[in-house]
Design a protein around this nucleic acid. Structure first.
Length: 508
DNA sequence: GTTGCCGGGGG
DNA sequence: CCCCCGGCAAC
């Protein structure tokens, strides 16, 4: 049934096949010249369209939408489909397609003739929205949403190249179209905050459909108004947009999974790019190198990690010989717990994570430590460390970071979204501490790092302060003169520190 | 073991 | 006051 999704509407300029005027049953190619609604009583049933088709022989005929099919020669179907449908056009069985309505023109010419009657699903489209369906057959598997602005969505489905016969290719195009069509029934897509019909004055955009602003590969998403939030939408820390992004994309992947049975590659897309939320499990790749255990979200990432870190190959490009495959394994982990970890893992001071914020070496000898000089490091870092979740992005963004970021987070998990929308998770057991800043023999502790670390631990663990004034003041959390300047520069300590009193310079 | 600092003492 | 240090509790 699904293999014969019929044309519901076409647009001028589309190449179609229509029954020969001679009535011999042969299908002849033609070009849609015009579309107009059938002149009939709307009360009698769903309105149909009549297509004026310029036939190959120069004749012009009118066909109902059941009679014509999309031409097989139209290897790439690019139909700018404009919806004129109203709410009452929805049919049972697809009545829940409101919201993301899309028209997919796809019909197998091999069928030759109209599929006849029967309960055909009616695909529809919201007014003021257009969708470009771009089906390619000569590239690796891919599903991409190319554009998403002003209600115009372009979806690119690249089908596997190993499909051999033209028939199969054609079939794949059909199924790909079905995949995209089926998107309209996904729970997410089904419920954008748009009221259809009744002279709907809201486009998707107005209703909340917004393009993802920072998607590098053209994901789509929409930001629903707060009062329309989906009950199943996870709470922060995952942003609404991110959640919606993986959802919508997962829908594409899931359907492709079913239709094309390319599970492995789909898993790649789901896990490497958007994250697999199926059963709350996510496939990750763990480095098996001794004492490493690094976990990344992509196979390419872990290969690169192994290649550069363990195999000592500095090729930035893909110069893999496959050897890396032996050094990592695929693991599954519960993303819920990961997300939980993210929520519980409070942001760390960017000064800790960012090498650029580090101040290597000791202050210049003889220069008195002024409050302003310290304030730059201390007072600025404090609010940032507590307010900017983006600082997490600095933990691990690539492999090169490890050489410069002496990160040692108390939590065993580093949940690390990166700029591309995916994220990497790194376990290191035992912890591998990269101290990119060489510690001088006389400075066993890097000042900048040591200065900030207590803040991180504060945020992460927030130990209860001593209750009551009787007990001893709990251990200082901040930078203390001894820690900052070291024993070697005791003369730079504040007097209180020198006298083993409570530090007056770095007051908590 | 290290660190922060309270409490106390000597000058 | 200034300066130092024993000792304790939190790491």
């Amino acid at each position: 049934m699904h293999s014969r999704r019929l044309v519901k509407r076409s647009v001028p300029g589309s190449r179609v096949c229509a029954p020969s005027p001679t009535g011999d049953g042969a299908a002849l190619p033609g070009l849609v010249q015009a579309v107009k609604p059938e002149n009939r009583d709307p009360a009698a049933g769903p309105r149909r369209n009549v297509y004026t088709v310029l036939m190959q022989d120069g004749s012009v005929r009118e066909y109902s939408e059941e009679e014509i099919v999309v031409s097989p020669a139209q290897m790439t179907v690019k139909g700018a489909l404009k919806s004129r449908l109203k709410k009452n056009e929805k049919k049972a069985g697809h009545a829940d397609c409101q919201g993301m309505n899309k028209g997919v023109m796809m019909r197998r010419a091999a069928t030759g003739r109209a599929g006849g009657g029967g309960e055909r699903p009616r695909i529809q489209q919201h007014k003021r929205t257009r969708m470009t369906l771009d089906v390619e057959s000569d590239h690796s598997q891919n599903v991409r949403l190319l554009e998403c602005k002003d209600g115009i969505i372009s979806i690119r489905v690249s089908l596997p190249h190993f499909r051999k016969s033209a028939e199969e290719v054609d079939m794949d195009k059909v199924t790909a179209a079905m995949v995209l069509t089926s998107l309209s029934t996904s729970p997410l897509v089904r419920s954008p905050p748009v009221r259809l019909g009744e002279g709907a004055n809201g486009s998707w955009k107005e209703g909340g459909f917004m393009p993802s602003s920072h998607s590098s590969s053209g994901y789509w998403s929409w930001s629903a108004p707060s009062d329309q939030s989906n009950p199943s939408t996870p709470s922060p820390p995952l942003s609404e947009e991110k959640v919606e992004r993986w959802r919508s994309t997962r829908t594409v992947a899931c359907f492709l999974d079913d239709v094309l049975s390319h599970k492995k590659n789909l898993a790649y897309y789901e896990t490497a790019i958007f994250g697999d939320k199926k059963n709350s499990m996510k496939v990750m790749f763990k480095c098996l190198w001794k004492n490493c255990g690094k976990v990344l979200s992509t196979a390419a990432g872990i290969q690169k990690h192994i290649r550069t870190v363990h195999l000592g190959r500095n090729c930035e490009s893909e110069c893999s010989d496959g050897e890396e495959d032996f050094y990592y394994t695929e693991i599954k982990l519960n993303t819920d717990s990961v997300a939980e970890g993210l929520s519980s893992l409070s942001p760390v001071s960017p000064s800790v994570l960012s090498p650029s914020a580090a101040r290597p070496g000791a202050p210049e000898p003889g220069r008195p430590e002024t409050a302003s000089a310290r304030g730059e490091g201390g007072k600025l870092a404090t609010p940032l460390s507590r307010s900017a979740p983006s600082t997490l992005y600095l933990v691990h963004t690539d492999h090169a970071y490890q050489a410069t970021a002496p990160v040692n987070i108390p939590s065993s998990t580093n949940f690390t979204p990166n700029g591309s929308g995916s994220f990497s998770i790194s376990w290191q057991s035992p912890p591998v501490t990269f101290t990119g800043i060489p510690a001088s023999p006389t400075h066993s502790r890097s000042q900048s790092f040591v200065e900030q670390r207590p803040q991180a631990s504060t945020v992460l663990s927030s130990p209860p302060r001593a209750a009551g004034g009787l007990s001893r003041k709990s251990r200082g959390e901040g930078r203390k003169c001894r820690k900052v300047y070291g024993m070697e520069n005791r003369d730079m300590w504040c007097t209180a520190c020198r006298w083993k009193k409570a530090c007056q310079r770095f007051v908590d």
